[in-house]
Amino acid sequence: MEKLNFVKNGVVRLPPGFRFHPTDQELLLDYLKRKVFSCPLPASIIPELDVCKADPWDLPGDWEEERYFFSRREAKYPNGKRSNRATGSGYWKATGIDKQIVSASGKHVVGLKKTLVFYRGKPPHGSRTDWIMHEYRLHSSVSNQMRKEKWVVCRIFLKKRGTKNQNPVFYDFLRSDSSSSSGSSGITQVSCNESDDHEESSKSNFNSF
């Protein structure tokens, strides 16, 4: 199969109509595992980049879309295991516990997903933003712990702002004139329970930062 390269100058450019939406398992096994062991990738679609060398809005690609990068884990302290996630304007802070990603069969853990939130400023007084990063790393049973190059794959996006506290107003144009003249305004309020938990969408207002 011919190897296709969709990355130009660090930016992913797919043909019209194509979208890159891999599952967690695909990111770990079809891309990260192959990257770690220097195997051919299905397609050259994920650029190599130290994601902490730039603020999230300055990374290559369209910030309104999900962006994926291969990145090396840089130690924060000599002989330490904590990663250095400070950027020019802020830092990435881990939230919650790492999620185990299992194989398609559900029998084996193939990797871990860490969720991080970007804060502007200096810790511990940074200001939280809507920038989210999912950092994927292979499980020790899949990768070789003795390898010097510790690659991860990162998915970066803007979290969608919620509207669950808003009550949209709908006009009932089918209401009869007689009912409207009885004192009714002809306006129906409908509660919206849409969740704001989506971690994949990235179309928030950039001006809020």
Rank of each mutant, 00 (worst) to 15 (best):
K99T: 14
K99F: 06
Q100C: 15
I101G: 00
V102P: 00
A104V: 04
A104N: 12
S105C: 12
G106N: 00
V109E: 01
L112N: 01
L112E: 07
K113M: 12
K114P: 03
T115I: 13
Y119A: 04
T129Y: 10
T129G: 06
W131D: 00
W131Q: 05
M133G: 00
M133V: 01
Y136L: 01
R137E: 07
L138C: 09
S140Y: 09
S140K: 13
V142M: 01
S143W: 06
N144W: 03
N144M: 06
M146E: 04
R147N: 08
R147A: 07
K148P: 05
I156Y: 04
F157Y: 08
F157I: 13
K160H: 13
G162P: 13
T163I: 14
N165G: 13
Q166A: 14
Q166W: 04
N167F: 13
V169L: 13
V169M: 10
F170P: 01
Y171M: 07
L174I: 05
L174R: 06
S176Q: 00
D177M: 13
S178C: 11
S178N: 13
S179A: 15
S181M: 04
S182V: 02
G183S: 03
S185M: 03
S185W: 04
V190K: 03
S191T: 09
S191I: 09
N193L: 06
E194Q: 13
D196E: 13
H198P: 03
E200P: 07
E200I: 08
S201L: 14
S201F: 08
S201D: 11
S204T: 01
S204R: 08
N205L: 03
F206I: 09
F206C: 02
